[in-house]
Amino acid sequence: MSPDTELPILKPTDFASDQDIRWCPGCGDYAILNQMKKVCAKLGATKENTVFVSGIGCSSRFPYYMDTYGFHTIHGRAPAIATGVKVANPDLDVWLVTGDGDGLSIGGNHLIHALRRNINVKLLLFNNRIYGLTKGQYSPTSEEGKKTKSSPLGSVDMPISPISMAVAAEASFVARAVDVDKRLGDILTEAAKHQGSAFVEIYQDCNVFNHFAFKHATAKDMKDDCTLWLEHGKPMIFGKDRDKGIRLTGNKPEVVELGSGISEDDLLFHDVHDEAQAFMLSRMKHPRFPEPMGVFYQIEDDVYENLVAAQVQQARDQRGEGTLQQLFESGDTYTVE
């Protein structure tokens, strides 16, 4: 392609594949898909260099609906497959779509290792706190006592916090968003621009098997009081009237009312580079606390696939590229006359 060839500007609709979407009507996945197409268009992504990799579950049907390269793999293994894609071709824009069952249960191990290696993949975990595809069993993020077909007396499993897990797994970008909230697009954009593993937990409504699991984060009369949108360098203020905030007392966060002697300066300021604070924020749960949204944590770190490629270059710098004949004769050789 000559340099002056005009690049076609793709619209969000250009990223729609020709496949019928088979999610249930009203599923939160639709909203995420729409935001994703917009983000791809906004970022100037190309279809040929964009890859969606997924595992198994409702969310993992995602790649079929994007007109890019896509790989719907096997249960839990998408992070490992995405790792191979990036090692083979670091130039690709790779998105990984997983769910709470796929990413945290059967594939928990791979998720941890993809994050700690800092592979330049954007990992979106659609958390609906239920197994939807298999018709409604409790998941690793279901609340304790959850009654489902497989837990008629209530689940006895302690749920895992995806954000706590990601911070502990050395992720270099950790964020949370909500399916129907427009700010999801901003978070996805920031994730895309991040160099390294970007982990985004997305609260996603399964309106068939776990409707309103995140009502506190989506209902008009609740969401402002029950969520806290994080902004780097800004005090942690929330509430419909923006009259409440988070203050640190000792090592513990507490909810305080602004006014009556408490000013913004008394509040905790969000430092996106502070790992300990990120972890603390990840432990703030509804209803005791507003649940933090936005970017919890972000640092710059070396990217795995670049390091892998650099070692090939390093070996070449030290030893030369080498021919096959040199390879064959690299051991102790001897000649038979």
């Binding site: 890859v51 790989f71 793999t73 293994r77 497959i81 790792t83 191979g84 894609v85 090692v87 083979a88």
Partner: peptide, 11 residues
């Protein structure tokens, strides 16, 4: 799985 990903990506 990483090998499968690498193969999908053309190596």
């Amino acid at each position: 799985c990483a090998a499968i990903g690498a193969s999908f990506a053309g190596q």
